[in-house]
Amino acid sequence: VTTYKLVINGKTLKGETTTKAVDAETAEKAFKQYANDNGVDGVWTYDDATKTFTVTEMV
């Protein structure tokens, strides 16, 4: 189990959260659900070296 981080660069919501998951795919599903629940829709990137997902909403 690995800890993954999500950085949110939203128009109205900004911040970070973490989740523990067995792999990046599982973490991504959890983060996308979290973003969807919070009304964040944007471009996703993932950095495997730092285990960090970033979602950026276009203005």
Rank of each mutant, 00 (worst) to 15 (best):
V1S: 09
V1D: 10
V1E: 15
T2G: 07
T3C: 10
T3R: 05
Y4I: 01
Y4K: 00
Y4C: 01
L6C: 08
L6R: 00
V7S: 04
V7R: 07
V7Y: 11
I8C: 04
N9G: 03
N9F: 14
N9S: 10
G10D: 03
G10Q: 05
G10S: 11
G10R: 05
K11T: 10
K11F: 15
K11I: 12
K11W: 12
T12Q: 09
T12A: 10
T12R: 07
L13Y: 12
L13K: 09
L13N: 07
K14C: 09
K14I: 09
K14F: 10
K14A: 07
G15Y: 15
G15T: 15
E16S: 12
E16G: 08
E16F: 14
T17V: 15
T18A: 07
T19L: 13
T19H: 08
K20P: 07
K20E: 15
K20V: 15
K20I: 15
K20A: 14
K20G: 07
A21V: 04
V22E: 08
D23K: 04
E25D: 12
E25R: 11
T26Y: 06
T26S: 11
A27T: 01
A27R: 00
E28A: 15
E28T: 04
E28Q: 15
E28L: 15
E28S: 08
K29G: 05
K29P: 02
K29E: 07
A30G: 05
A30I: 15
F31K: 00
K32M: 08
K32Y: 05
K32T: 04
K32L: 07
Q33H: 07
Q33C: 06
Y34H: 04
N36E: 11
N36A: 14
N38M: 09
N38C: 10
G39Y: 06
G39N: 12
V40L: 10
V40Q: 03
V40T: 03
G42F: 03
G42M: 02
V43S: 08
W44F: 04
W44A: 01
W44R: 00
W44H: 01
T45V: 10
T45S: 12
T45R: 06
Y46Q: 01
Y46E: 00
D47G: 02
D48V: 10
D48K: 09
D48L: 07
A49I: 15
A49G: 06
A49D: 10
K51F: 13
K51I: 03
K51E: 04
K51W: 06
T52G: 02
T52C: 05
F53I: 02
F53N: 00
T54I: 06
V55D: 00
V55T: 02
T56M: 05
T56R: 05
E57N: 05
E57M: 06
E57G: 05
V59S: 12
V59Y: 13
